[in-house]
Simulated assay, not measured.
Amino acid sequence: MTDIAIIGAGMAGLVCAQRLTQAGYSVLVVEKSRGLGGRLATRRLYGTWADHGACYLKPKGELFRNFVQLLCDRHILEVWADATQANSEPRYIAPAGMSAIAKFLAPGLQIELNQRVTAIHPTPQNSWCLTLETNAELTAKALVLAIPAPQALTLLAPLGADVLGREFIDNLSSVEFYPSVSAIAGYSATSAALPSWKDRKFTDDPVLGWIGLDSSKRPHPQQPVFVLQSSAKFAQLHLETPDLQPVGKDMLQTAAQRLALPWLEQPEWMQVHRWRYAFPSRPWKNPVLSATSAIPLVCCGDWCGGYLAEDAMISGLAASGEINHYLRQLPLPNMDFLKFFT
């Protein structure tokens, strides 16, 4: 029996877990993937790595700016300089990949990777029992779901309104997401001259949403690597497409035409990833969404109050406060990350 189980090891889940662990609770984080970070995702491939989820951070609030500054001081983040955007607000990238942010948040936490939760039910002992894909079970006095709302709904809907509350189920059901397809493409080091820009955003394009020269983030890139993100409309068309390679080729062909860079159509290698829940199109209005169950249960994530990594962090902090309120009400670490992680 652990005090708190957290499903999801993205920004929200890790921040929540770290704060509750430092307060003195026993916390177990369960993550279905083999790595940390959620959409702070870095894929290692062909002797390099690339960010195929969130590609940079652009802090807005003071709390997140302090966190970003801390990561810069630790040489985890740095400014992504681009002469074509000299007058814009700074954007921050991780030379070692965006998943380095999640790794920074993880020390001291008990995390089980490659563990998919398949069912949740209350026990007579007034705790939550989580069944894993391996048929193993774990129990906790409180539960945090730090995953996209539709995934949380899949796990929670079988419990019904009698356990969780009709309003909670309706609110969770109201959250909707846009999908996205990310294509990572590597090119010969002797490819035609690289563009002067680091990235380009496409507005109202039927196929593309964004393209970035991912290798410009790396300290000693061996070859040019681009990351392309599709439009939501294009991703929706291919939500159930089994083979995504032709989808990635369509994206490269479109980018080659839009940017007048014909060699973009001929990568040395390419990998494609589908994000079924990429960006909240209808987020929940508050930082957390709490059930009215007898046993504490809270949902959090970037879909609570926004859609960015910054919103995920704020939501994770709010979830830690909510869970603490339901349990022993221990003194929580200061929400200022400059103190929180020193």
Rank of each mutant, 00 (worst) to 15 (best):
R34C: 03
A183G: 05
Q151C: 09
A294I: 01
R65K: 14
A318Q: 13
C16W: 09
V79C: 12
L77Y: 03
R91Q: 14
P221E: 05
M270T: 09
Q18M: 05
G165N: 04
C72V: 15
L261I: 13
F64E: 09
C300A: 15
A192Q: 15
T131A: 13
T342E: 13
H238I: 02
A106T: 12
D311P: 03
P179L: 10
D243V: 03
C300Q: 05
V29Y: 04
A232E: 11
Q271L: 10
V288C: 11
R34F: 00
W284I: 00
L308V: 03
E137K: 15
I120H: 08
E310R: 02
S290N: 08
S127G: 10
L159T: 05
I101Y: 08
P206K: 11
G53E: 01
V288A: 04
E176Y: 10
W263D: 12
P150R: 03
S26M: 01
D204L: 13
M313P: 00
E167P: 03
R116L: 12
M313A: 13
V68K: 05
L145T: 06
R65Y: 01
G305I: 03
Q229F: 12
N114V: 02
I101C: 06
V15G: 04
T84S: 15
Q223K: 07
L237E: 14
I101M: 03
I111A: 10
A183Q: 02
Y307N: 14
A119T: 11
G321M: 13
N286V: 01
R44N: 12
G10I: 04
A319K: 10
Q22M: 12
R258L: 11
A294V: 09
G24E: 09
S281I: 07
I169F: 09
G38V: 10
L132T: 09
W263R: 10
W284E: 01
C304K: 03
I211M: 12
S182F: 08
W263S: 09
